[in-house]
């Protein structure tokens, strides 16, 4: 029971991170029908920027841990968002009218560029986040141990997701994003600046990815320049699991994948942990390509 509970909370925390990254995939896919392969590397950029800002500015010493980390998160999200916009401008915008697979190859190229740029700037070795920033306390809930950080990560990701969902559903700009996702040309005819919408999507998605990156850094402590693509692939799996292009789907898929993975690691085999996500991905694409919450669409996958 204790193992189950520990793995469950662990899975939910990791799942929250997957969900945040998955949102970036799903939003870009929703509007552009493009799998942004470089998204996982934007996440890595978030992790590394977080480390740089943390060590160089020492905000957490000046403002205290909570306010410091929040400010840090805002900075990281803005910076990664800007990188996302640049990525779109340079690598995807010239390919809007080309065959879809050209853009996919370009995304792949961008992913290689990002991960190697990080390696060239920070070096190929594993970097370590400072340990003592946030609490390492472990709560005791009905006799079961729950590290506070896990709760913080889960809550933060849920708050960010709800904020995003509210933004998309309730505001005018959010409506514009939804309209562009359904039909770009019709949206344009309705006076929506689709280019602006795409820019916004490429800001929000990577910003959330950057936030996830910072959380991974703070939670796990160790970061490496290649970590982006494995997180990216798993988050993509989460997006597919929930139904790509569907924002609540990304949240459900992320949390579900996190739980499946950590329970699988505990009860099936730890050594096969990374393979579990891929098996889930392949199965879902074969059995139900539209995902759990995805609607049946005419488009063939």
């Amino acid at each position: 029971m204790e193992i189950f509970f520990t793995q469950l909370t662990n899975g939910l925390a990791v799942g929250g991170i997957y969900a945040l990254i998955a949102l970036g995939y799903t939003m870009v896919y929703g509007v552009l029908k493009l799998i942004n392969f470089a998204h996982g590397d934007l996440f890595t950029i978030g992790t590394y920027l977080g480390l740089s800002l943390l060590t160089s500015l020492a905000i957490t010493d000046k403002l205290g841990p909570v306010a410091g980390v929040i400010l840090l998160a805002v900075m990281v999200m803005c910076l990664v968002g800007i990188v996302g916009i640049l990525l779109d401008r340079v690598a995807y915008k010239p390919l809007r009218t080309s065959p879809r697979l050209s853009a996919v190859v370009s995304a792949l190229g961008a992913s290689i560029v990002f991960s190697n740029a990080i390696m060239l700037v920070y070096g190929p070795s594993t970097k370590v986040y400072p340990h003592d920033i946030l609490t390492t306390r472990v709560l005791d809930i009905f006799g079961l141990p729950v590290p506070v950080m896990r709760l913080v990560i889960l809550l933060t990701s849920i708050v960010l997701m709800i904020a995003l969902y509210g933004f998309i559903q309730k505001t005018k700009i959010g409506t514009a994003i939804r309209a562009a996702a359904i039909d770009q040309d019709a949206a344009r005819l309705m006076g929506i600046n689709v280019d602006r919408v795409i820019m916004l999507v490429f800001f929000i998605g990577p910003a959330l990815g950057g936030a996830a990156g910072l959380m991974v850094g703070l939670y796990y402590g160790q970061i490496k320049f290649t970590m982006g693509w494995i997180y990216g692939l798993k988050a993509f799996t989460a997006a597919i699991l929930g139904g790509i292009g569907n924002i609540p789907g990304a949240m459900v898929g992320g949390l579900l994948l996190g739980v499946i993975e950590s329970l699988g690691a505990a009860y099936i085999s730890l050594a096969w942990k990374d393979a579990i996500a891929f098996v889930v991905l392949i199965l879902i694409l074969i059995v139900r390509p539209t995902g759990l919450l995805g609607e049946r669409v005419a488009e063939k996958i």
Binding site: P94, A103, S106, L108, G109, S111, V113
Partner: peptide
């Protein structure tokens, strides 16, 4: 790094 850039440029 260079091949990644080449891939993007080639696609464009």
């Amino acid at each position: 790094f260079i091949f990644g850039i080449a891939l993007v440029i080639m696609m464009i």
